[in-house]
Amino acid sequence: MTDPVIAFKGLGHAYQPGDWVFRDYSAQVKRGEVFALLGPNGCGKTTLLKILLGAMKPLAGSVHQHVSVGFVPQIFQVSFDYTSLDMVLMGRARKIGLFSTPTQTDRDAAYAALERFGVADLAQRPFHELSGGQRQLVIFARAVVSEAELLLLDEPTSALDLRNQAMILDWITRLSRHDGLTVVFTTHNPQHALAVADNALLMLGQERYVCGTAREALSEDNLKALYCVDIRRVSIGYMGKQVETLVTVFAPGDDEITGREKKNASE
């Protein structure tokens, strides 16, 4: 563990003056770690991510982030029929001179990246014809090819089926362990965060947040406060090891769930 890749202090943002989305957030992301951002809908996860990207200026506080960033947006749409190869090559923008086009080196790197994610056969296919999982992989390839040190992923698993979710989580771990990349991702699934993240930040409310190691931060109490749903942490045997995972207790018809919300509101 060395110097932080991202450090922010007293961070806050509001779209309407005085109506803070979040306020006074401080945290650090260290080199090579996987960092998860969790929060209910509308708590400002994407806003925070954009601020960390440098694409938005925060209203308060400061962000220190000086490494090259690769970004994998949540919804990826393009207006033209670019091929997957074209998309990946755009990741090389920083390496390609203002007046030049991708060289053979760039193309080789792009093919290598596509191959690595197992989608080299899609290179000449129009990007928008790919399935959600395939697109995500192509964009991963693009992030890798850009030789970014920090990857920011906005809900990388949200639109995918279970198999693809597992595959993406696997890639997050591999990119961090093998390539030494720092990965920050947002998610709605605390199970994913527990599985791959080293550290996690839980956005509980405007000025309330929890930040720490994933194991500590993703406690049952914190998750209850976050989602107002009972989530149990269980340890199960898997492939000869004890693995900790989260189980969400969905109890339809139980007045407790809605009742709890009322209690929260009166606090």
């Binding site: 954009k50 990207l53 440098g54 694409a55 960033v69 690769g70 970004f71 947006p73 990826f76 749409q77 393009v78 207006s79 033209f80 670019y82 074209d86 755009m90 990741g91 923008a93 920083r94 390609i96 203002l98 007046f99 030049s100 086009t101 991708p102 850009s146």
Partner: peptide
């Protein structure tokens, strides 16, 4: 001369901002 760069503008604004300076 800028022909290839123009591709970047056709991306999502946040996305494009990340790719080039």
């Amino acid at each position: 001369l800028l022909r290839w760069r123009i591709n970047l503008f056709s991306l999502n604004e946040t996305d494009a901002a990340m790719l080039g300076t």
